Simulated assay, not measured.
Amino acid sequence: MVYAAMKSESLTAVARVILAAIGLSGLVLCAAACNLEPDPRGFGTHEQLGLTPCSFYQWTGRTCPSCGATTAWAHVLRGDMAEGLSANLAATLLCLATLIAVPWLLLSACFGRWLWWKPREWDVLLAGSALLVVAILDWLRRILS
Rank of each mutant, 00 (worst) to 15 (best):
E37T: 10
A69M: 15
A69G: 13
C110G: 09
A33C: 08
A97T: 05
L49F: 11
S10G: 10
R113I: 00
L36V: 06
C67F: 13
W139R: 09
I22M: 06
D80E: 15
L51W: 14
G44H: 03
C110I: 05
L89N: 01
A91N: 10
G26E: 10
C67M: 12
A32L: 14
S10C: 09
A72S: 06
D138E: 12
L36E: 03
L115C: 02
T98M: 13
A13K: 14
I18R: 01
A74P: 02
L51C: 05
N35L: 14
K7R: 15
T92P: 04
L27A: 11
L11G: 07
G44D: 04
E83C: 05
W122I: 14
F111R: 13
L144T: 12
C54M: 13
C30F: 06
W139G: 05
Y3K: 14
A74I: 04
Y3H: 08
A109V: 00
A5I: 03
T52K: 07
F56I: 08
A135P: 08
L27Y: 08
A31S: 10
W116Q: 09
S66V: 04
G84L: 09
R141Q: 14
S129V: 02
Q58D: 10
L36S: 02
R113S: 02
C67I: 14
I18W: 00
A20K: 07
G79F: 00
W122Y: 08
L96H: 04
V2P: 00
A90Q: 02
A21N: 09
P103I: 06
R113T: 06
D39A: 14
L115M: 13
L99A: 13
G84K: 00
A31Y: 11
W122K: 15
T12Q: 11
H46A: 09
W73E: 02
V133L: 15
L131E: 14
M81T: 12
T92Y: 01
G44P: 03
M1H: 09
N35A: 12
M1F: 08
S108R: 01
V28M: 14
E9C: 09
M1W: 06
H75F: 11
T45V: 06
L93V: 06
G84N: 01
V2R: 11
L140E: 05
R113V: 08
E37A: 12
R120Y: 03
P119N: 10
A4W: 02
A13R: 12
P53F: 08
I22V: 15
W104K: 13
S66N: 03
R16P: 05
A127C: 06
A21S: 14
D123C: 12
L99Y: 10
